[in-house]
Amino acid sequence: MKQNKYDDPSFFEQYSQMPRSIGGLQAAGEWYVLRDMLPDLENAAVLDLGCGFGWHCRYAASQKASRVVGVDISARMLARARDITTEPNIEYRQLAIEDIDFPPRTFNVVLSSLALHYIADYAQVCRKVFDSLQPGGAFVLSVEHPIFTALAAQDWYYDAAGNRLHWPVDRYQEEGLRYTRFLENEVIKYHRTVTTWVNSLLQAGFLLQRVEEPAPTADIITQYPGMKDEARRPIFLLLSVIKPAV
């Protein structure tokens, strides 16, 4: 199932008001770790899967990538990305992540930020990314953490006074569809265990480099006080893998 909620005008408007939509990478609580997981991008051909407003594409261009391709299913997202992009070596394509079909060895680096938990066939995407990379190339991705996606409610357990007591986890081993609420809309996500997130990459042929579960920094919490509880449970899972050089 290929979702495109972002072309709904109301949903898109609400998404556009989120801190990371306005502040970009500096407002993304996991960015300080994801950035450190990326390889040297100078002279690299880079693919961004689910590029949204193109923040990561423009970062790659600022690091002197030779070519950057951003892929997203949403025409509205790409229109905004094009409006705020001036770098001539960035190309945006309207395409579902599931439908990528680049020639073998096209890219040196593929990245994906908070997009693959919307994809039904993650294993197939891993195989396609593997084929599209040069030997020695890197795939760096972030997804919502399985602790976060296990229950469709994706919410805290509260006491009678409305205080957050704990984050409930249930049905963790039951992978598959979750009908969740995001920005007052029903959104389909796919819950996977950490085992599946990692092993699908290994089965595609990748070599694991790093696994991270970042918490927001003190600076981020100071700037965005609503994120203080994000340190109480993992919300992001970040993975870095490489394609064998031979």
Rank of each mutant, 00 (worst) to 15 (best):
A65N: 04
V46R: 00
K128M: 08
P225A: 11
V194D: 09
D7A: 08
A115C: 10
K128L: 15
I147L: 12
G137F: 01
E98K: 03
P225G: 09
H56W: 12
E98P: 02
R35Y: 08
A245I: 12
N163P: 05
Y224K: 05
P135T: 11
A245W: 02
R171V: 12
E186A: 07
L151C: 12
Y15S: 12
G29R: 07
E175C: 14
T196I: 08
I90N: 06
V71R: 01
I22K: 10
K128R: 15
G23V: 07
E98A: 14
A60M: 05
R80I: 08
S113Q: 09
P168W: 09
C126I: 03
T106Y: 03
L237Y: 05
G54W: 00
P103Q: 09
Q94C: 06
V241H: 04
Y92S: 04
R192M: 14
R67D: 09
A81F: 00
E184T: 12
D159M: 08
M77A: 07
T193M: 10
Q17N: 10
P234W: 11
A65I: 06
L239Q: 04
P104D: 14
D48V: 05
P88H: 03
T217K: 01
L111Y: 02
R164D: 11
I73Y: 00
E30N: 13
N185I: 04
R20H: 13
S74N: 04
P88M: 04
D48P: 08
F53D: 06
